[in-house]
Write a protein that binds this DNA or RNA. Structure first.
Length: 499
RNA sequence: GCCCCCAUCGUCUAGAGGCCUAGGACACCGGCCUUUCAAGCCGGCAACAUGGAUUCGAAUUCCAUUGGGGGCGCCA
């Protein structure tokens, strides 16, 4: 549904220097949604032109992240495609040829400045409070001098011969008309001395060769766009359309980074965020459907996504809302499905004494009890460990709940124990019909009786509803834990009461 | 320092001149429900950065100021 009939082809072009960051993933998501909405292609291209910073295994982590979130790609490093290869390191000749052509055309030149000279130059510029940038020292070197330098074996890079005058205007889909003065742009490097291209050259060559129609990227690239446009022009390529997405910021309003806590998508995965919640939340950072719709499936996002509704304002990554949304998604899962997703977390976090594999059947009994109490799946072990461990550890005085004392608590437990033993069937209904009247009989409020039992049975004052908990635990374990509680009360040093 | 972008509740946002005494959501605070905790329901708090201009009328247009962000690498 783009104006021109041109097919939508967009790309996600991460550089494999580490774990994929949520900001990056949000960019990937917008590209993916845009592609799917327009029935276009979503391409993954690995920008590994920085040999020093390339991290082992990063590519797989990035691809796994996309898979986990449900973003599929039509062309990419693992599956290939008509415009491959999809690793920039395997496309070096393309960039070198383009750079060479630019030199021949006079749009670029060799530069022999050493890193030391550049450092000194920058230091001087900073000292004089001038904008940093290459001083064009090598721009005018004569042909004979080039030959001499070349023969002497000096290391060299290729720089773009940036026009000294005029301006470069362009129309950003999200921001509208933007104009840069060419005079403010220095002669940036196209080809490094190791023969690898910089981002500027590589992305232009690839985006053209891969027939990318739209570039959706973060706003941090906005000021590089004029350089890219100059390159398109010099190479005689038709530029794609640009859309610069609002940045994702940390709580201190600076560019989201590691010091803001968990930011890599892998961390969210290991903490127990659901991919569907993650997607939904990320989609809403800089995009909205209307004034009220918040919970949307992947399909609804695809159906409704539009660059027209992308905001221009940077967004702070708000964890609290993500947690809330994750809770919503957890509650919307069937109990069976939640069980399935929970098991890996229990397997991972429960103490080693707990027998593996953990019984799916047993977890299925527990899942409904915690489903509406969990926001992040990694919390579940802390919420349910007393179901798996042996006798829970706890302070005896927890057994004496509000307005009770040792005698009352002891009596309540002993009477309960007696009646529990005689219970023909052990389930929620029988427990309730037995325990409620018992409270009255003992002249206790239900909260007092149930609270005492809760501590006895779970070792804590906060737990899922009592009857369900007891049922899941089973008669034997309940009885033995109540017995322990009675003993604990008897062994308490002195009369204490809790008000 | 220079260049560019941005500006509605603490946060995510709706709003494209009268529908706005500015709507929704998270968070927070009350209440209800209730065996604890949650969940749920009901209610509350809370914003158009400032100053000009245009207009009968401006959160919405224009200009300044202020504030915030980003960029300025043989990183991407």
């Amino acid at each position: 549904m783009t104006k021109d009939k041109e097919k939508v082809r967009v790309r996600y072009a991460p550089s494999p220097t580490g774990f994929p960051h949520v900001g990056n993933i949000r960019t990937a998501l917008f590209n993916w949604l845009f592609a799917r909405h327009h029935r276009g292609s979503f391409i993954v291209r690995i920008e590994n032109t920085d040999v020093a910073r390339t991290a082992e295994g990063a590519v797989e982590v990035i691809l796994d992240g996309l898979r986990w979130l449900g973003m599929d790609w039509d062309e990419g490093p693992d599956i290939g495609g008509d415009f491959g290869p999809y690793f920039q390191s395997e496309r070096l000749e393309l960039y070198q040829a383009a750079a060479k052509r630019l030199v021949e055309q006079g749009d670029a030149y060799y530069c022999y400045c050493t890193p030391q000279r550049l450092d000194e130059m920058r230091a001087e510029q900073t000292r004089l409070k001038q904008p940093p940038g290459y001083d064009r020292h090598c721009r005018q070197i004569s042909a004979t001098n080039h030959v001499l330098k070349f023969i002497s074996g000096s290391r060299r890079v290729i720089r773009f011969r940036t026009p000294l005058e005029k301006q470069t205007p362009f129309n950003d889909i999200i921001r509208g008309e933007v104009t840069f003065e060419n005079a403010n742009i220095d002669d940036f490097i196209l080809l490094k001395s190791d023969g690898y291209p910089t981002y500027h050259l590589a992305s232009i060559v690839d985006d053209h060769q891969m027939q990318i129609s739209h570039i959706l990227r973060a706003e941090e690239w906005l000021s590089s766009t004029p350089r890219h446009l100059m390159l398109y022009k010099a190479l005689g390529y038709k530029p794609p359309q640009f859309a610069h997405l609002p940045m994702l910021l940390g709580t201190d309003r600076s560019k989201l980074s590691k010091r803001h806590g968990a930011v890599s998508i892998t961390e969210f995965q290991t903490q127990g965020y659901l991919p569907e919640a993650m997607i939904n939340f990320l989609a809403l950072l800089g995009w909205s459907l209307d004034d009220k719709t918040e919970i949307m499936s992947l399909k609804e996002l695809v159906d409704n996504f539009s660059l027209k509704r992308v905001s221009q304002t940077a967004a702070i990554f708000n964890r609290e809302k993500l947690e809330w949304m994750n809770g919503i998604y957890i509650r919307n899962l069937s109990s069976k499905e939640l069980t399935r997703r929970l098991i890996p977390f229990l397997e991972r976090d429960l103490p080693p004494e707990v027998k593996r594999p953990i019984s799916v059947e047993y977890v299925e009994k527990i899942t409904p009890l915690i489903q509406e109490r969990v926001k992040i799946m990694e919390e579940v072990t802390g919420l349910t460990d007393f179901f798996f461990n042996g006798q829970p550890e706890y302070q005896s005085d927890l057994l004496i709940v509000k307005k009770m004392n040792r005698e009352l608590a002891g009596k309540a437990l002993e009477t309960s124990l007696l009646k529990l033993r005689r219970l023909p069937a052990f389930n929620e209904e029988t427990l309730e019909t037995m325990l409620r009247p018992l409270a009255e009989e003992l002249e206790l409020k239900v909260g007092q009786l149930f609270g005492t039992l809760r501590v006895a049975v779970t070792g804590r004052t906060v737990a899922p509803p009592l009857f369900q908990t007891m049922t899941a635990l089973g008669k034997e374990r309940c009885i033995s834990r109540i017995r322990v509680a009675i003993t604990k009360l008897k062994e308490m040093p002195e009369e204490t009461s809790n008000s």
